[in-house]
Design a protein around this nucleic acid. Structure first.
Length: 811
RNA sequence: GCCCCCAUAGCCCAACCGGCAGAGGCAGCCGACUUAAAAUCGGUGCAGUCUGGGUUCGAGUCCCAGUGGGGGCACCA
């Protein structure tokens, strides 16, 4: 164990934390923005309070803090708030295991994380912090639910839902990954339940089309993921008329959705989802027993089994038929479990000649592969008509119209667990479902703990008898509260708005505050929420806009996804034993070394393998930077009297400084943080050489360099930067300094090196004035021996001149 | 099956609008300091850019095809 002391000791870190606490440079007081303020809203995905901060947090916070500090130094008014996404299952499960209230676990962890964030020196505005588990917050989450309800966007629906047996609750589609619960990995089963849904599908087109605004400002892959998730397809809805006699209760038509209307001539059967009401309606009395049995058989299969591609197709005939809309031919109707109840109309036209799945089903059921008269060659598609022609025919025949279908489903928001915001609804035997009046919010959670929280298929809230019983807001009679709580993704779908108006008890947020700050300029966070939090937040923003609360369509103008932190090629996990503990790293190397190493290891969006992160290497850099500042500080500001030295060396130092400032500014705008650190390393080396063998530490140009380093380094290594700033004789804090100005005159070199190529290959170099004209450069290039030798007296066919950098002679 | 992203030195990564392939770091090697080692300091090499075509005076960069890797969606009609 050769623990090396970090350049910044624990004691010095604590010293600076006290200084920052006292100076409070990061708080933006609530209320109107001062006129003329150039506002920037930097948002970071708020943490879930599980234990202490981990490596993932270390990365996001290092990235987001660099941006926050950069913007502040550039003179922006920066809102950079922090809070906790503090409802959720881990706290509830811990509470059951320990016989406690979930708030105990939650609040302990929040305190731990807040202390770690302070040590990690993230420049958050803590004055606006929020916690989604507190009644003063979830009151407004409930308000949001009522807004959705009033606008007809929240509804109670019966249907087959995803149920996680491990977590004992239903899940939204977005929370099911390959048939498993995204949280615990259990295999999800289907249950038929009545639940609260939110009509996100009403916004499918806007969610899709508004992505045009995000193009180029959000990572392309997130946009692609959302596009896939929404899954819009353009097609036609076709009506097939009933072919039988009178069927009581059955509609006269069976509708299907297809993206390939041109294949209509190849239809040999229609198939409907077995569990749908349509299947029952279209089932002949004699086939009902078979359908009922088939339905039971289907219900026993898990999601994973059912959704597997390429399995043997099953189904039962329903004993009824429809007529082909153009030919009038009879077509039998089947129930088949490869047809999904929730997509399109829950019914498809079976075209074995045009669709592999239909072909497999037809083969399994002994249905003809093609109608009589349709020529089908093996291995080739029939000669279908033009899709548009077919659509015209259908429109003319009144048998169909253009339609869109979506993969996106409504958002299931009920959860049968305790640690969430209660759904603010009352069930009255006389009035039915009645919303809790806004004035009665919040509907507070009852005080349950320990075993009272053990899930038994219904929410633990159902066991809180006193809490449960309430008088109906409409008729005053005895009624019961809704016992479910909301999906925690509802909590996080609007928290970025609450930050804007902290402490307000009359509104969730002030629309005037939202005008000041929304949309967030940059949102920093992980990719894992692409189809969850990010989609829900976009949706809620649009709803609140429609309701008059917001003026923006989109909540996050730009999105910066940091990569995952992995170790030796694999995700850090207990079972692999490759976890790296953040607190240990901080103790061993110091905060700045860890932050620098993380930033330096690669582009923010790339996955970060801890095997490639070298905090110890940053010590050398930090030590050099500190020495630079101390040498300059000790030498005093001799230049204060005489200005910058006129020596060529001093001018070169200034050129380096200003070139670097210009370059780093540009790199910061492009979020190329890793390259910024590399440039700072170079500049420190220039400074060191200037002190050791150049104009010396007393030269004002060297001081200028050292001060520039201190300010720019503060984005990544705030402690080291403060030490430098102090050594240079400044009052704290460097956080209050200004971003260094670039002297453009110093960017223009007097002389540059021009490359001379012959046939595209470098054959010589020339030192020329930076403003050399093309003719002169061409003349000099052609005089070079290396060029004349290769031309061998012949006239060049062509000479390309790009003054002052390049000449290419083509023989 | 459909869609998106990526590929530069042993490793992590640079290379502005197409213009000398190399800034920074890790590891390696050599040297200084040391009784010795660690730490520290100084120095140093290494690839022609995944493959094959194309455009161009000139391609890591643009275009086409492919390979490899990562990711999303998927019995979605």
């Amino acid at each position: 164990m050769t623990a090396v002391d970090p350049p910044i000791s624990r004691e010095r870190e604590e010293h600076w934390q006290r200084v920052w606490d006292a100076l409070d440079p990061w708080t933006v007081p609530p209320g109107r923005l001062e006129p003329g303020a150039d506002a920037r809203y930097l948002l970071t995905m708020f943490p879930y309070p599980s234990g202490d901060l981990h490596m993932g947090h270390a990365e996001v916070f290092a990235i987001e803090d660099a941006l926050a500090r950069y913007w502040r130094l550039r003179g922006h008014r920066v809102l950079n708030p922090i809070g906790w996404d503090s409802f959720g299952l881990p706290a509830e499960n811990a509470a059951i295991a320990r016989g406690e209230h979930p708030a105990t676990y939650t609040e302990t962890n929040i305190a731990t994380q807040a202390a770690s964030i302070r040590r990690y020196a993230v420049s958050f505005d803590f004055s606006r912090r929020l916690h989604t588990h507190e009644a003063e917050y979830y009151r407004w989450t409930q308000w949001l639910f009522l807004q959705l309800y009033e606008r007809g966007l929240a509804y109670r629906g019966a249907g087959w839902v995803n149920w996680c047996p491990q977590d004992a609750t239903v899940l939204a589609n977005e929370q099911v990954l390959a048939g498993r619960c995204e949280r615990c990995g259990s295999e999800v089963v289907r249950r038929e339940l009545t639940q609260w849904f939110v009509r996100i599908t009403d916004y499918a087109d806007r969610l899709l089309d508004d992505m045009a605004q995000l193009e180029g400002r959000w990572p392309e892959r997130i946009l692609a993921m959302q596009r896939n998730w929404i899954g819009r397809s353009e097609g036609v809805q076709i009506r097939f008329a009933d072919d039988g006699g009178a069927h009581p209760g059955r509609s006269a038509h069976l509708e299907v959705f297809t993206t390939r209307p041109e294949t209509l001539a190849g239809v040999t059967f229609l198939a409907v989802a077995p569990e749908s009401a349509t299947a029952w309606d279209w089932c002949a009395p004699g086939a009902r027993a078979a359908l009922a049995e088939y339905r039971e058989q289907v219900a026993t299969r898990t999601e994973i089994e059912r959704s597997a591609v390429g399995q043997t197709k099953t189904g039962v005939p329903l004993g009824t038929s429809v007529r082909h809309p153009l030919t009038g031919e009879p077509i039998p109707v089947w129930a088949a479990d490869y047809v999904l109840a929730g997509y399109g109309t829950g019914a498809v036209m079976g075209v074995p000649a045009g669709d592999e799945r239909d072909a497999a089903f037809a083969a399994a059921m002994g249905i003809p592969q093609a109608p009589a008269g349709l020529a089908v060659l093996p291995g080739a598609e029939p000669d279908w008509p033009e899709p548009d022609e077919m659509v015209q025919q259908l429109l003319t025949a009144g048998a169909g119209e253009r339609a869109r279908s979506y993969r996106l489903r409504d958002w299931l928001v009920s959860r049968q667990r305790f640690w969430g915001a209660p759904i603010p609804m009352v069930h009255c035997p006389r009035c039915g479902v009645v919303p809790v009046p806004e004035a009665d919010l919040p509907v507070q959670l009852p005080d349950l703990r320990g075993e009272q929280l053990v899930p038994e298929g219904v929410s633990p809230l159902a066991g809180a008898k006193d809490w449960l019983t309430v008088s109906c807001p409409a008729c005053g009679g005895p009624a019961q509260r809704d016992t479910d709580t909301m999906d925690t993704f509802v909590d996080s779908s609007w928290y970025f708005l609450r930050y804007l108006s902290p402490g307000r008890t009359d509104v969730p947020f002030d629309p005037a505050d939202a005008r000041d700050w929304m949309p967030a300029d940059t949102y920093v966070g992980g990719v894992e929420h692409a189809n969850l939090h990010l989609l829900y937040s976009r949706f809620v923003t649009k709803v609140l806009r429609d309701a008059g609360w917001l003026e923006t369509d989109e909540p996050f103008a730009a999105l910066l996804n940091q990569g995952q932190v992995i170790n030796r090629g694999a995700a850090m996990s207990k079972s692999l034993g490759n976890g790296v503990d953040l607190a240990e790293q901080l103790d061993t190397y110091g905060v700045d070394a860890v932050r620098l190493a993380i930033i330096f290891s690669g582009p923010p969006a790339d996955d970060l393998d801890w095997a490639d992160v070298h905090p110890e290497a940053m010590h050398r850099f930090q030590a050099r930077a500190l020495r630079l500042a101390r040498d300059v500080g000790a030498a005093g500001a001799s230049g204060a009297s005489g200005g910058f030295g006129a020596s060529a060396e001093a001018v070169e130092v200034r050129r380096s400084t200003h070139r670097t400032i210009a370059e780093i500014t540009e790199l910061m705008e492009m979020r190329r943080l890793n390259v910024v650190v590399a440039r700072l390393m170079e500049l420190v080396s220039v400074g060191k050489k200037a002190i050791d063998g150049g104009p010396g530490a007393g030269e004002l140009a060297v001081r200028e360099l050292a001060e520039g380093v201190a300010v720019m380094l503060s984005l990544f290594a705030p402690y080291t930067a403060e030490e430098m700033w102090a050594a240079l004789g400044h009052e704290p804090s460097v956080a209050r300094a200004r971003w260094p100005e670039v002297d453009r005159a110093l960017l223009v070199a007097e002389e540059v090196e021009a490359v001379v190529q012959v046939a595209g290959k470098v054959r010589g170099h020339l030192r020329v004035p930076a403003d050399v004209d093309e003719q002169e450069l061409r003349r000099q290039a052609l005089r070079l021996d290396a060029v004349r030798r290769r031309l061998a007296g012949a006239e060049p066919r062509r000479v390309v001149v790009r003054a002052p950098h390049l000449v290419n002679v083509v023989p």
